[in-house]
Design a binder for these strands. Structure first.
Lengths: 343, 343
DNA sequence: TAGTAAAATTTACGCGGGTAAAATTATGAT
DNA sequence: ATCATAATTTTACCCGCGTAAATTTTACTA
């Protein structure tokens, strides 16, 4: 039975027959006290379910054991997966992750950075909105809080960036598609939310040039983070116009592709590499749902594990280095081509 | 230029020429101080970007302005959407939401409840794992923290439950399907993660009985939260066996249906209500992706807005009532049938 | 313009724990 | 057993803010 009359560390220390500061040390690192002391404290913990007041603990700490994790859009399961991995690593290392989603909104992102600052986190893993981000706000934030950017790079901000190598993504898909059929046209949003999109377009163009093929970029309308619907509308329009320059479409990302595939289905266009199909569709990201599209989506996969692991490790190194690196590093991980039925 | 030499509220108060407790009042509620005072403080805030230490603020507060939000599985965009709405409402009301995902793991759920307790939140909105939840842990938690359960009910726990009326979901789909074609069989996991699944099966059985139709429940193998893959594997098996009792399949939830549709596509089974289709498929939830399946999925939609609004409002009432209600209430919102192409 | 209630501000004290420096205890070689 | 040294524990003081009670100011009535 737990007699929870214990109100504070003072009382708990008294009951376990140890001075409060020693108990305090114990809670910061159980191995920093003598074994006999540790055992007495742990015996007392069994009887009285005391836990230190985290607010009092953090009040005087220059920096806490918290780690902030910020993603741009949590309704995208891609980020759900990343978050799960990152949270796990942080907890293993004895940190307390706090999760935030900007929900695709600049003002919200800024608010998050604001409350994050008052949280005095040991460090922050920030996947910014990208084009919609308030660069000044992010820059200011990074000056005050040790920050590692991930997923979406903003030139010069944060102490490091960890993400995927967009060129690796696109070169693999373009090479594969060109080798096995007509060369691909590139399907993307006119005003992409994210700098990765620009890098992918550039990679497409340079890859096509290298292969001596004529590039075709199809830019569709739409703003915001509802990529599937944007891809669907764009797809419906293009299919109705029959304006596709080739029978192979390479989408900038899987969410657009999911919408585009829906448009194909609605328009009665058979997609796939099987005989009898009119169109091949491929994409990038290996979105959690891409294996369940109809047909299943050929795509270039992020190395989820490598990106999350390396982000977290980089942040830990940053924290140990006192919050600053000599010079900003960018770590890019290559893609892995996932061949499925759509191309 | 912001001269951020300000270290604490004392210094900030001195510089703005006001006593510290008055400044404290201001930060608690800007309208609680005289207008002239408020303007002086805000003028000072412009010059010196001081922000109160949240840890010191919360240390002495009996209950903070924090609200905990816990969902079972954040890689499911359904919860991403819900979270977005709930967070918005909390911020509007001047609370600070803290988001947690159990990631489908009991130990993780318990850890979250643990750190949530030491956070002294004003209240918690908890969507439990369901069958996998540690009932004892949740019960203990609810005794200490004002909690409203949502999405997934656990009998008697929390001060209230807000969710969807499973009977409304299933009765509408069953009625529609039976009226427009063959009566549906019910497709579900053998050991569902979530109590809603059981309620849906029961609703299916009772509805079929009421309509004088013979019920068929198909139970497929698989555990965990990868519902799409479970639905796909189950679908492939059943389609290979050709053991479907009717040409109409009603899936327990959209994520299973997404997998089932993928299995149909792979097996060459044409799905839809259009002529020439062999199979009709419908489901429940109106998952964010259900409009992008091929064919688009006929489903019963949650009233996302009503559920999130009412959850939050219930929690606010609970907080104002001092954390306890006279008796536990359960609020269930009806579904809206969304007719798309799959059935 | 005085008088008074209401609002705002200040005084004074406490909260729960961090942490440097002092005091104590354990370790181990002589 | 002794003494030096390292490892632990305790002493003592501080942090940054909340808040009840006392005081002052403001607003309003007569």
């Amino acid at each position: 039975m737990s007699h929870s009359e214990i109100r504070n560390m003072e009382e708990f220390a008294a009951i376990s027959g140890i001075s409060r500061p020693t108990v305090s040390k114990y809670f910061h690192d159980p191995n920093s006290v003598r074994k006999s002391t540790r055992m007495r404290i742990e015996a007392a913990l069994e009887k009285y379910d005391y836990r230190p007041n985290i607010y009092a603990m953090n009040q005087n700490r220059k920096l806490t054991k918290n780690i902030g994790i910020v993603v741009p859009y949590l309704a995208d399961p891609f980020f759900g997966e990343i978050v799960r991995m990152i949270e796990g690593r942080c907890i293993e290392a004895g940190f307390t992750p706090s999760l935030f989603s900007s929900h695709g909104d600049q003002a919200h992102e800024n608010d998050i950075l604001d409350s994050l600052r008052s949280m005095k986190p040991a460090g922050v893993l920030l996947a910014p909105l990208g084009r919609q981000s308030d660069k000044t706000a992010i820059e200011t934030f990074c000056k005050h809080v040790p920050t590692v950017l991930f997923d979406s790079n903003i030139e010069g901000m944060g102490e490091a960036f960890v993400g995927s190598d967009n060129h690796s993504f696109v070169s693999q898909t373009v090479e594969y598609l060109s080798r096995t059929g007509e060369s691909p046209c590139f399907f993307e949003m006119k005003t992409p939310a994210n700098p990765n999109a620009n890098k992918r377009r550039i990679a497409y163009l340079s890859m096509m040039e290298r292969l001596g093929l004529e590039p075709h970029v199809i830019k569709i309308d739409g703003t915001g983070w509802g990529f599937e619907e944007i891809g669907r509308q764009g797809g419906l329009k293009i299919l109705a116009e029959k304006s596709l320059p080739t029978n192979t479409v390479l989408c900038s990302n899987d969410r657009l592709a999911i919408g585009f595939l829906a448009a194909c289905y609605e328009s009665g266009v058979r997609v796939g590499r099987a005989p009898g199909c009119e169109l091949r569709v491929a994409s990038h990201d290996d979105h959690p749902f891409s294996r369940f599209t109809c047909p299943s989506l050929t795509t270039a996969a992020h190395d989820y594990n490598a990106v999350s692991d390396h982000s977290v490790e980089t942040l830990f190194r940053l924290i140990e280095s006192g919050g600053r690196f000599e010079n900003r590093t960018e770590s890019l991980f290559p893609a892995r081509l996932i061949m499925r039925e759509s191309a």
